[in-house]
Design a protein around this nucleic acid. Sequence first.
DNA 1: TTGTATGCGTTATCAT
DNA 2: ATGATAACGCATACAA
Lengths: 328, 328
Amino acid sequence: MAAPTMNDVAREAGVALKTVSRFVNGETNINPAMAARIAAAITTLGYRRNLAAASIRPGWTSRTLGLVISDLANPYYSVLTRAIESRAREHGYLVISASSDENGQQHDRIVDRLMEQRIDALIVVPPRDAGRDWSSVTPPIPPLVFLDRPVEFPAADVILADNAGGARTAVAELVRNGARRIAFVSDDLSIYTMRERHAGYRQALAEAGLPVDEQIVTSSAHSSEDAAAAVGRLLRDERVDAVFAANNRASVGALLAFREHRRVPLIGFDDFEAALLGDPAVSVVSQDIQEMGRLAAEIVFRRLAGDPGAATTRVLPTRLVLRGSELP
Amino acid sequence: MAAPTMNDVAREAGVALKTVSRFVNGETNINPAMAARIAAAITTLGYRRNLAAASIRPGWTSRTLGLVISDLANPYYSVLTRAIESRAREHGYLVISASSDENGQQHDRIVDRLMEQRIDALIVVPPRDAGRDWSSVTPPIPPLVFLDRPVEFPAADVILADNAGGARTAVAELVRNGARRIAFVSDDLSIYTMRERHAGYRQALAEAGLPVDEQIVTSSAHSSEDAAAAVGRLLRDERVDAVFAANNRASVGALLAFREHRRVPLIGFDDFEAALLGDPAVSVVSQDIQEMGRLAAEIVFRRLAGDPGAATTRVLPTRLVLRGSELP
DNA sequence: TTGTATGCGTTATCAT
DNA sequence: ATGATAACGCATACAA
C-alpha cells in the first residue's frame, strides 16, 4: 500500500539497491540484462523515486525555486510568475510561489517556510510594510533576488524598473500636449513603486515650471473601484485637464470615471489588456514584465552555477506607448 | 558553511538531539532552562529545520500541493491558482504550480516531477491533447482532483462548470433580443470547454428553431488578435446580427473587431476586466473561479483528512450577467 | 524529563 | 560491473 521504494525494486529485480540507484540516475555502466530486469520491476511496482529523500544527501538539492509576490491574481504578477516558471523548467526546476498580500508578517511566514522547504533560491517582491529585516538573517542564505523594490542587503541581486523615469516621461508628454493641471492617481505611497512614480510625476511638473497641487494627488486607489471614485472626485475640479494613473488598476478606474463624468487626456503606468479597447486606446508606460522574470531566473541560475560576483542592481527601462489617450 | 543541523544545535546547547527535536516540534514537556539554551543555540547558529528531511519519515508528508494548469498568464488560471493557494496556506500547505501550455507531453513531465517531489495531492486541468492515460497509472496515487475537464479515472474527484448550460442561456438571450444569425467564436474545439460551449450554442439555436450555419462558426481564435481577425471576417456577412464569444480572449477580439467594422449584440463566456469598460459594457456568462478553487482545495483536504467516500463530480452553475452589449 | 538507538529512501564510498 | 555499508537530517520507540 505504501509507495514502493528502491529496495522493493531491487528485491523484485533480484539486484542490489545500488544497482537500481545507478539505473534510475541514468548511469551507463550497467549490464543490459540487469537494466531490463530493473525496468520491468519499476513498471510492475509503479516505482517513482522520492526526490525529497534524494535531496537530503550532501551535494543534492531540491531543484525548486521559491517565489514570493504580492498577489498572483494581479496580472502583473501572474505574467511575471509565468515567465520565471518557464525559465525554471528549462533548468529542470519547479517553482513554489506564494502571495504576501503586501503583508509583512505573511511575507515573513512564507519566506521562513520556503527556507525550511530548502528551496535552492529565492525570488522576492518585498512587501509594502517592511517585512523581514534581511540584514539580521544568518547565513547560509540561498541565492536571493529582490524584484521591483530595493532592499538593504548586500548579498542580494536587485532588479528594478525605471519607475521614476517612466512616470516623468509620461507626464512630460501630457504637458507637451497642453495639459497644465495633471491629476495623479495611485495606490498607497508606502509602496516603493508608487513613491517612485510619484517622484517622477513631480519632477516632470517641476521641469515644466508647473506647480504641484496636493489637492489633485490621490494615493488611496487600491482597486479599480477605489480609483474610479477618486478620479470622479478629482474631475469635479474643472481645471483638471489630464490624469496620470500610476498603475493598471488606477488606469481602469480612470476609464470608468471618464464614462460617468468627462474624458481628459490620460496616460497610465503598466500596460493592461483593456488598454487597446478604449476609445481612444489608452497610452501607457510599459514595462517588460517577461524580461524582468527572465532576468531574475537568469541571475538565479548563474548564482546557482557558482557565480561569486558582487551583487548587482539592474534597472530595466520603460517604454512610453502612445495610443491616443494622451491627446486632448 | 553548510546549513546547521539539529545535531549542531544539540552540541551547541549541550543537550541531546532528541531534546532539540522536541523543542522544534513544540512539545511541552521540556525543561525551561534547556529550552532557553536550545533557543539561544538556534539563534546563534541560524538553524532552520529541514522539512525535506522530516518529510521522508513515515507518517510525515511534504505539506505541499501540486497544481497543473494551462497557462498561469491567463487571468482565468491565475485567479484560480490564487484561490487554491490561499486555502492551502490556511492548512499550512504550499502550492507548486506549473503550466502545461495544453501540451500533453509537458503536462505529463510536470505530473511525473510533482509525484517524485512527493506532493501530498494533485489538482490538474487536463491538457487539450490527451496527456497521460491516468487509468494506467499504478497506485498509490495521491488525492487527485480534475478541474474544468472530465477524465476517465474512477479514483479522482472532478469539478466542472456548466459550460453547455451557460452558453445555451446566453445564446437564448441573444435570440430573445431579436438575433437570428449568431456567430460563434472560440478557441480550438479539441478543448473540452470549447466543445461544451459550442454544444450549448447549437442547442439554443435548435430550441429557437434557427438553423446552424457552419460558415459563421469559427474555432481558431487562440489569442485575442486571432479572434479579432476572425470576427472581422464574420462581420463581412451582412446578415450576422450577433456574436457569442466562447472565452474571454474571443470577447476581447470581438470588441476589437467591432471598432473596425460594425457593432452587433455580443455575449461572452467568462468575465474579464475590460468587460465593464466597453460601451455598452459587455454581457458575459460568469463562472465563479474563486469558488472552483475553494472547492478544489476543500475536496483535497477532506481527502487528505481521510475521507474515503466515492469520487464525486461537481458541476458549478454559471451566471448570465447582462450589461447592455446583448442588445441591438 | 532526557537520551540512545534505529530507520525513513536515497546516494556515495569502497571493496569485490 | 556489482554490491555491502555508511551517511544525509530528522523523528520515534524505548530505555533511563
